[in-house]
Design a binder for these strands. Structure first.
Lengths: 230, 230
DNA sequence: AAGTGGTCTAGACCACTCC
DNA sequence: GAGTGGTCTAGACCACTTA
């Protein structure tokens, strides 16, 4: 190892934390000291430590220095791909059916999530996503035409609303919730399962600036597991 | 704005993507060009673009250049704090009860998850976590004494195994799965709910190098929602 | 073969925060 | 006030990948 990379430094620091040479709560040397010890530039040490801080393993504050986290808040990163790619990525055949496409007045809880005034009318879509011809996920979506402009011209039988939005309406942020629920009659019917079956649900609201774009409830067929590594 | 920061550059690039000046799939100028245009060093542009790439908004490849992602794979970051801090963070009072602490032979599915040989014996713990004296989450945990050394000396009535491990056994990685399930008799009894109720479950296996540390199944009381923003 | 991103260096100034 | 991390610059070399 002639020249040390930031990944080398990161690994060296991590090893010392794991070996408890620097136990939880302990202060570790400053960037300049570590740079001198490891024989590299301070910028290299900075990048290594910055990544460890982003991962929650150390805590950094100006003047106070860098400390090993006492309660490392592990951060798991979930990837939220377009449904079609998620299914195809597992080697299965994707298909979808548009079950409903109507302009309606949304129920209050949807209106509240989207922070819209009473009386507003939205585009309501229900889509069943399939993997190898089996029900995979049932999507109940409300769309704001003011931000999702062009949706009325889209052929949602060819491309799902999910995918159309990702490709055509860049959004600035969103709120996501994951929870378990008993399948509603609607969901049970679409997924072809008994009502009240435990299903995994994802609710997402996305925004473009301060304007709501869409609110969705994704009900996954029983057996679905969302996985990741840390 | 006298001197531009990497955050400024990131915002400028993001704005052009949102405005579709650089539509999905389009190639954007090279780092050197952008640095010249924005009047900053290439390293500054590099950091801005690197962060956008980590967020999944653009794709970068040497020689091929940088392109706006066609199907942005949005990444959601979930924080997995110690249960006590999660409860206290919401202003509620935390408490826990150790319901079981026995050395047992684990069932096959646990043994397989931990990649251990047949016949191994593990420490089996069952803990009920409470928020404001109400059942919050039921934890069923299997521990490998070879990696979780010192666990036998810990007073698990004072500090939960969850917290003891975080503070005493640094781990290198883990697998996590989130899904919905019907409450088992065990879980329903501990959480004081009807069997078969839909509950949110997190299964986690953690490793220290190639050696398993612990395998847990966390069953949350009905109503629990795991939330984040993107 | 050559273009493009990936990274390192050395030095500098600055912002924040603790004492 | 002073110590520490946060960031920018200018230049350089290198690694990867595609044309």
């Amino acid at each position: 190892m002639r020249q040390k990379s930031y990944q080398d430094i990161r690994a060296l620091v991590l090893a010392r934390i794991h070996a408890q040479i620097w136990p939880p709560g302990a202060r570790i040397p400053g960037e300049a000291d570590l740079a001198a010890e490891f024989g590299c530039a301070r910028a290299t040490v900075n990048r290594a430590l910055r990544e460890l801080a982003e991962a929650g393993l150390i805590e950094r504050r100006r003047k106070a220095g860098t400390r090993v986290a006492v309660n490392p808040v592990r951060k798991a990163t979930l990837e939220l791909p377009v449904v079609r790619l998620e299914v195809e990525g597992r080697g299965e055949t994707y298909d979808h059916k548009l079950l409903l496409r109507e302009t309606e007045t949304p129920p209050d809880h949807v209106r509240a999530r989207m922070n819209l005034p009473a009386g507003v009318r939205l585009l309501h879509l229900k889509t069943l996503h399939m993997a190898d011809a089996c029900p995979y996920m049932f999507e109940d979506r409300w769309l704001n035409r003011r931000t999702a402009t062009g949706i009325d011209a889209a052929d949602l039988n060819r491309i799902s609303a999910n995918e159309w939005l990702v490709q055509n309406v860049p959004f600035s942020g969103g709120d996501i919730a994951f929870f378990a629920a008993a399948a509603s009659g609607d969901e049970a019917g679409a997924l072809n399962i008994a009502p009240e079956t435990a299903i995994f649900v994802v609710e997402r609201t996305t925004w473009r600036g301060l304007d709501p774009v869409t609110a969705t409830r994704l009900a996954y067929a029983p057996g679905y597991r969302m996985t990741t590594r840390i």
